[in-house]
Design a protein around this nucleic acid. Structure first.
Lengths: 222, 222, 222, 222
DNA sequence: CATGAATGAGTGTTCATTCAT
DNA sequence: TATGAATGAACACTCATTCAT
């Protein structure tokens, strides 16, 4: 007659505890003991639900990544073009406590992803997905004519990098980069993206020819 | 008289060893023992030259920061406007092994700066300086007429965030963002910055007279 | 359910091991490693049952103090007057191996109690109790008429000091002060105490009726 | 051309520094570094003037012992009998800062003398000398008729133990046993010694009218 | 399912000591 | 004579992990 405990629920509780510890103590200061204490359980229960410490941390990271990914997807619903793009980018910024927590977890694993091959692969998996989403969203803007023809992947790399950097800067110095400031930076970037391309293109409807190696998106020669 | 050893030189050697260990093992895996071994010395030598572990790590970070800062300053020499701005931004990117190492060290301390107040202050010190340098460089571009009037600080925040994000992305996924790709992203961002603002400035030709070597640093299209 | 181990028993075992190490190696030579080895366990077990080293040592001292206190109390049972006093004092002397061990532990902390405020307070707590017991016992002798009226607290200070000094002298030089010698010193001190005061008490015979087992505890002269 | 430094003077300075460190930090907390710092010299100089740490500590103890011994001897000058005895005993009590310091040093080595054979021998050397001095002084009192015939060595053991215990008690709890209290305890002890014996001396009646009836307290021979 | 007991490896740090100058 | 450099051993303590219950 086992206790009525949902295995997955218990796991999620522990991952949640791990999140809070990581946020409070940093990844280095995160110990199984601390996670157990935060979850109000014994030390051994953590290794009961997870293989080992690595396993908990990986789970914590993955849950963070999947939550952010879900948010981004949901942010796109009902929107299109630049509006959708901006909404999606905003989901990766630490605009409120929830997103701050999730992003903090992610950033905590960045250093690891630089040194460690396995962590790098893990990170690439999620990062590539995001990059593809952004690229697709940019492509959508182009097709809608909101921005002129351009190297979509390069723009995606730019936006991803901008939001990554903006996010970590805001986490480190929230008073310098409060939510409104972050939004402004992203909005202006998108405005520049638009104005730097579309004003050169009076006949932009026809523009969709753009594809392939394409014209010179940057020097506005087109 | 004591043994002939230059105190500062020895300290630098140890900091160098610390760098290599941080790069190889990550900040968490960096132990005094490992640093000592890397420096080819005994454990106790580290606490002979440094107060404690915190002291070594702080020294390692500061040396990294000051080297990057020096590079940025030197990159500006003899240049002006967008050319100078681009050169300075490039110095913060992991374009070669030296810069990769230095940036890796910096990024390793980011997570710490989010959780820990003291680390945050330490980071802010160096980050603010950089932001000011970039802002001043942007202002220079405006005055030169290379870009139109704009919110200089906001643009600085954007560029700093972009380079921060681009740097860490490139460190994590060097094959995805090789040096040339990084340069391209930055160049295009500056390009957009120019084209999105200067068309609002009909009198820019006159202003361009002020400039030194060349008005169109990026594509020379004119 | 966890392993069947009695927590307190295990703690006592470790304290016992600590005692033996302190006796053998001295307080300075007492390391957690040595205690663990003496207890036949791993190093970490000590910090499993105790907060830290300070905690073990404090426990070791307190157990020693409480054992001695218990002995003193038991020694008084069924006795009164000088007989009781002598018995109680004797319990603080290193007359056999058990008492030698316990006293050795106590003396080991004396130096600490001189320098360190906290240790001093800790020592005072136990020392005051003892002094009060002795004073009360002396008072009893006075009331029984075995010794004449006197400054009871001063006599208590004297006896406590004598036994403290005699104990440590005997621990350092057991061959010079074997058990019989220690007993003799105490007995003669009490003898002097009696003979130097009781001539002032002409009515002491009548009072002696009150006493229990025997009125002339020391020489039985009546 | 060597510096003009008197070897012995320098040694004494270091020993003095060691004293202060022992008093402040306790014997366990006394490190060569701390002694060197206290003496305002480098670490290596300590091992230059002394073989090793043991050597410094031994020297510190011996200097303390010899100072106390010299004091005791000087205290006897011009005095005789009980007066001399009391003066000599007083020199072993922590009645002022100097004596407190010296006694503190001594007591710090007691625990060591219990465990360690060599320290015990070292202590015995000085303790025996003192005991002999006291015994001789007691003998002097007997011969002067100030106290009656008695077991001189036993009385010496008593007085030595009393002063040892009183000294350490006063060091641990100076507010409980201020100088005056210590003197009182010793004086009363000597008074009891006198009054409990001298009435047995029929040839001294004139001197001690006041004595009572009392039997011979110790041998009960009557 | 859950837990306290127990461990061994490893942490930063301190120490007395030796060495070259 | 004097000193900083350098070391290796030892310290208390923490950790992730395993085991028996």
């Amino acid at each position: 007659m086992p206790k009525f405990v949902d295995h997955d629920t218990r796991r999620d509780e522990i991952v949640g505890a791990a999140w809070r510890v990581i946020q409070r103590e940093g990844l280095e200061g995160t110990t199984i003991r601390a996670i157990a204490a935060e979850a109000g359980a014994s030390t051994a229960i953590v290794t009961h639900y997870f293989q080992d410490k690595k396993d908990i941390l990986k789970s914590a990271l993955r849950m963070s990544q999947s939550r952010i990914a879900r948010r981004r997807k949901e942010a796109l619903k009902g929107l299109a073009g630049l509006e959708a793009l901006e909404a999606s980018l905003a989901e990766s910024l630490p605009l409120d406590d929830d997103r701050r927590l999730e992003l903090h977890i992610e950033v905590s694993f960045w250093a690891r992803a630089i040194s460690d091959e396995e962590s790098a692969t893990e990170h690439l998996r999620s990062h590539d997905t995001w990059r593809a989403v952004i690229a697709s969203s940019v492509q959508d803007c182009v097709e809608l004519g909101e921005i002129g023809p351009c190297d979509v992947l390069e723009v995606a790399d730019t936006l991803v990098a901008l939001v990554d950097g903006l996010g970590v800067d805001a986490l480190m110095h929230p008073e310098r980069l409060p939510p409104e400031r972050q939004r402004l930076v992203v909005r202006r970037e998108l405005e520049r993206l638009r104005s730097s391309t579309d004003h050169n293109d009076p006949v932009r409807e026809s523009r969709h020819q753009r594809v392939g190696p394409g014209p010179q998106p940057l020097d506005g020669a087109g």
